[in-house]
């Protein structure tokens, strides 16, 4: 348990520390699904976005196939660095069902599945 706490603290620190998320790397892709660059995200912050969700609405970062599973932490880190907040204080984006892509046919049969069980 103690070890776990230590690891989680260390992990937290790596997100608080120095990074290469600076303007020299402006063309770095942050959200691969929607090809959103660091520059796009920094611009959204300059235009008053203060949360992951607001950055998403402006830039589409996190709107793609993986729904922010790759970029969401990075976006939080960029937000923390550029707004002077602690990483842990930056509110994460909202995750919504189904979280992983599923076929629409599966979703359509949801109701029948519940019927079977009852």
């Amino acid at each position: 348990m103690k070890n776990l706490k230590k690891i989680s603290k260390q992990k937290q620190r790596t997100y608080e520390g120095e990074s290469d998320l600076n303007i020299e790397n402006a063309d770095m892709i942050i959200c691969r699904c929607q090809e959103v660059t660091l520059k796009d995200i920094v611009q959204a912050i300059a235009e008053d976005a203060t949360t992951v969700n607001e950055i998403k609405r402006r830039t589409r970062a996190g709107m793609g196939l993986c729904q922010g599973r790759s970029c969401s932490r990075l976006v939080r880190k960029i937000l923390a660095e550029h707004t002077g907040q602690k990483f842990a204080k930056v509110i994460p984006g909202t995750f919504r069902p189904p979280v992983r892509p599923i076929a629409l046919s599966t979703l359509a049969s949801l109701e029948e599945d519940t019927d079977d069980k009852s």
Binding site: G64, Q67, I102, S105, L107, L110
Partner: peptide
């Protein structure tokens, strides 16, 4: 959402094989 998708597939059967990434 299941009913919505079912109705949409009823009119556009081609939708059945597409993937949903989010609902809200």
């Amino acid at each position: 959402i299941s009913l919505i998708v079912k109705r949409c597939i009823r009119f556009f059967p081609v939708l059945a094989d597409l993937h949903t990434i989010r609902s809200w």
